[in-house]
């Protein structure tokens, strides 16, 4: 069972992701409301999968992705953010996230995206 951390500054989005992915067989090890929290939680819980919002207080998602990747280059990161600025999202992918999911999303979309994200991590 893979360990999951959810980083999003919205409580509603956090619970939505948690509800959907808890059923998806992921073990939720951290819920972070900003980049700084996410980094702290990452260091202690060492999740293998992270969903990351980009616009967050304290430390934004891109900086957080950069720092997390520096700690563990094998972590799988799904950016879950509203598509107001494609360039920012692309920047996040350049920093080491592997996929992007546009907000708002349905549970099925989230589930598919996580499936795709984890697809070859089992044998890669």
């Amino acid at each position: 069972m893979k360990k999951l951390m959810i980083a999003d500054d919205s409580n509603i989005v956090r619970s939505k992701i948690a509800r959907a992915l808890g059923q998806h067989g992921l073990h939720i090890v951290g819920l972070a409301a900003n980049g700084r929290e996410a980094l702290e939680l990452f260091k202690s819980a060492r999740p293998e999968v992270v969903t990351m919002d980009l616009t967050m207080p304290e430390m934004d998602g891109i900086e957080c992705i950069r720092k997390i990747r520096a700690l563990d280059p094998r972590v799988r990161i799904l950016v879950v953010s509203a598509l107001s600025d494609k360039a920012t999202a692309i920047q996040a992918l350049k920093e080491g996230a592997q996929g992007f999911l546009d907000k708002p999303f349905t549970e099925a979309e989230l589930s598919d995206a996580i499936g795709e994200l984890l697809e070859d991590s089992n044998h890669g």
């Binding site: 494609k86 692309i90 920047q91 992918l93 350049k94 592997q98 996929g99 992007f100 795709e116």
Partner: peptide, 21 residues
């Protein structure tokens, strides 16, 4: 940048389609 990303094998093609500028 988007095209450069698509040439990176670690990026999931299906998960970046929505970023196509």
């Amino acid at each position: 940048e988007y095209i450069e990303l698509l040439f990176k094998p670690e990026i999931k093609e299906k998960l970046v389609g929505s970023l196509n500028p």
